[in-house]
């Protein structure tokens, strides 16, 4: 880090950014504490009696179900993605040749695929395979969506593992799989944590598959519930903001626990 001092331009940019990113966060928390009446009376913006009615209303049975669904989908997707992306990333990090090149090219294309395009055939295929309206269907779709990204981000972490470590293991007669498990994976565990966190965050927020593959809102996760409510007519803003805050709390927890990892890990795999 260098010792740049903040000049007037820098400070202006910082003030602007602080407002740009601080105000929305402040605003949802404030609104979620208001009653519907306060939101729509034109004046009172900061002066109001905090109420938790929106939260009490939001926290009914349907919400608890949605929370369970969100947890199931996000953890299920994270586990499944890591299970298939970790070996794939290692394989792609340690091999060369046309299969590797083809694999990398395919992963780049797949990670860029618009979700609005994949949701159409998946809806038809899942209908055929009786996966619609099942949580496992959404987990599978999310896994297919996030595996390319996870594999590409994990690969540099495995490339960073010195080959000498593995060769020492191989000479000892350990099989490749065992070497991978006991030597390589522990060294690359930061990468696995970073990628796992990102996959969890993305799966938690995913709503397009959930909205279309679940046939009734009764089985929606939080993100889908929020997406459905916000595009509905006559929005109950405090209720919606309460829902938004509740959807964000797990993100806040994950974020607090992994911020350093995210800040530094994101840029390891990303462009240098």
């Amino acid at each position: 880090m260098n010792h740049a001092k903040a000049g007037p331009v820098t400070s202006t940019v910082k003030v602007l950014l602080t407002f740009m990113y601080g105000v929305p966060i402040l605003w949802i928390v404030l609104t979620s504490l208001k009653s519907s009446r306060d939101v729509f009376s034109s004046r009172t913006s900061l002066l109001f009696r905090p109420e938790i009615t929106a939260y009490v209303d939001a926290l009914d049975g349907a919400l608890a179900d949605a929370l369970v669904q969100s947890v199931l989908i996000a953890t299920g997707t994270t586990a499944l993605v890591l299970f298939i992306a970790i070996p794939a990333a290692y394989g792609l990090a340690r091999t060369r040749g046309w299969i590797t090149t083809l694999g990398l090219g395919l992963l780049i294309v797949l990670q860029m695929m618009p979700q609005t395009a994949t949701v159409i055939p998946l809806f038809q295929i899942f209908g055929d395979w009786r996966l619609l309206d099942h949580t496992i269907g959404v987990i599978i779709a999310d896994t297919a969506l996030l595996t390319p990204f996870a594999t590409l981000l994990l690969r540099p972490f495995f490339r960073a593992v010195p080959r000498e470590l593995e060769e020492a293991g191989a000479i000892d007669g350990a099989t490749i799989l065992r070497t991978f498990w006991s030597v390589v994976l522990p060294v690359a565990r930061n990468g696995a944590f970073t990628v796992g966190t990102l996959v969890f965050l993305l799966a938690w927020g995913e709503f397009l598959y959930a909205v279309n593959f679940f046939l009734s809102p009764g089985s929606y996760p939080l993100s889908a519930l929020l997406a459905q409510q916000v595009s509905a007519f006559g929005i109950d803003w405090p209720g919606l903001m309460a829902l938004a805050v509740l959807t964000s709390i797990p993100i806040l927890l994950v974020f607090t626990a992994t911020y350093r990892l995210l800040r530094d890990g994101l840029t390891v795999g990303a462009v240098k």
Binding site: P24, V230, R263
Partner: peptide, 27 residues
């Protein structure tokens, strides 16, 4: 300030798009 602002921005980035979208629809 820089450290806090960076953390805030990364947090907002980590929020689900539905949340950010809802907030901005309201704002």
């Amino acid at each position: 300030w820089s450290a806090a602002l960076l953390a805030l921005m990364v947090f907002v980035w980590a929020l689900p798009p539905v949340v950010n979208g809802s907030v901005w629809k309201f704002l």
